[in-house]
């Protein structure tokens, strides 16, 4: 890291706000923290006395747990709030909740919300550092970072790699964070999915939009599939899972088009047999569980950095 660098962000709202230098710094710190989770006593005092609130407006198992494990391994005090968005027909609920939480002087609020931009709105009403744990169909920055960490761990670099992202690009906040992040780090991101799930402007975000699964996957270093949903809000996106699996599902034959040492990734939870076949998900190239392990390290790094450490 260049001398004189300091991490300039108070909040982590999205990869879009992070420079290549910021990402590099986060990944380096995360890599150094990974060892903590391998110790017999998995705890360091770094964030002792910090109050961290997990404010989850959407159900989540692994992301919430991952943030909580990360916080506890750094000795922070963590509290979980699962709120329902169904009662939040008006946004005062979010603002009121945030203001009430702020009155208890937390240092970090980790928020997941069904609406894009909710974490951004929170920054206008609270003093705490905000970490976006997934907002609507916008971004999921910690997932993007842990994906980059996992790829770098296996490949030794990000620059020049071909990353194929397959599936529901439109509704995937993971895809959005990964397109921005990998592109910024010099990877070539190729995306493919049904036309109904490819939003306009992906090329402007830096991705190459492919016209076939083969084109996207051929010679790829990473094949990442996304969780698929059949329909959303009366929008007929796909006729059936059956057809999706047949036309867009990532099978062993599809993975064979990629480089021999290609990694198979998925942000989870996996619809086995639909977007990803079980033998591939559990196969030798799958790094899905490495992603989960690295998630803790990346989140430790983020907690460390937003509390003013460098």
């Amino acid at each position: 890291m260049a001398t004189g660098y300091f991490f300039p962000h108070r909040h982590i709202l999205g990869i879009d706000h992070l420079s290549a230098e910021d990402i590099e710094h986060i990944l380096t710190i995360a890599e150094s923290f990974k060892e903590i989770s391998a110790r017999p006593i998995k705890k360091v005092p770094t964030l002792r006395g910090n109050t961290i609130i997990n404010l989850f407006f959407e159900p989540s198992t692994r992301t919430r747990l991952s943030f909580e494990v990360a916080a506890k391994r750094m000795s922070a005090d963590t509290f979980n709030i699962s709120a329902s968005t169904s009662s939040a027909t008006k946004g005062e609920t979010l603002i009121d909740t945030a203001r009430n939480i702020t009155a208890m002087r937390p240092d970090i609020i980790i928020i997941r919300h069904a609406y894009s931009g909710a974490p951004h709105m929170l920054t206008r009403y609270v003093d705490a550092a905000i970490i976006n744990a997934g907002d609507g169909t916008h971004e999921h920055p910690s997932q993007g970072l842990l994906d980059m960490m996992t790829v770098r761990e296996h490949k030794g670099r990000l620059e020049g790699l071909k990353i194929a992202i397959i599936g529901d690009i439109m509704h995937s906040r993971v895809a959005h964070s990964n397109i921005l992040g990998f592109t910024r780090m010099g990877s070539r991101v190729h995306v493919f999915g049904p036309a109904t799930l490819l939003p306009p402007g992906l090329d402007r975000l830096g991705a190459t939009v492919c016209t076939s699964l083969e084109e996207a996957v051929r010679d790829a270093d990473v094949v990442m599939t996304l969780r698929i949903q059949k329909e959303r809000q009366n929008d007929p996106l796909l006729p059936s899972f059956r057809e999706y699996a047949r036309e867009y599902g990532v099978t062993r034959e599809v993975v064979a088009l990629a480089r021999p040492d290609a990694l198979v990734m998925h942000p989870g939870p996996v619809n086995r047999g639909i977007e990803l076949m079980p033998d591939v998900a559990d196969g030798p190239r799958s790094v899905i569980l490495d992603q989960v392990t690295n998630g803790v390290a990346v989140r430790m790094a983020l907690l460390y950095l937003v509390t003013g450490n460098t």
Partner: peptide, 18 residues
């Protein structure tokens, strides 16, 4: 017209329905 802003690059970037 089921979205919340113009469909296009900005909507895609912000994760808002176009």
């Amino acid at each position: 017209a089921t979205g919340v802003m113009n469909e296009g690059e900005v909507a895609t970037r912000l994760g808002l329905k176009g």
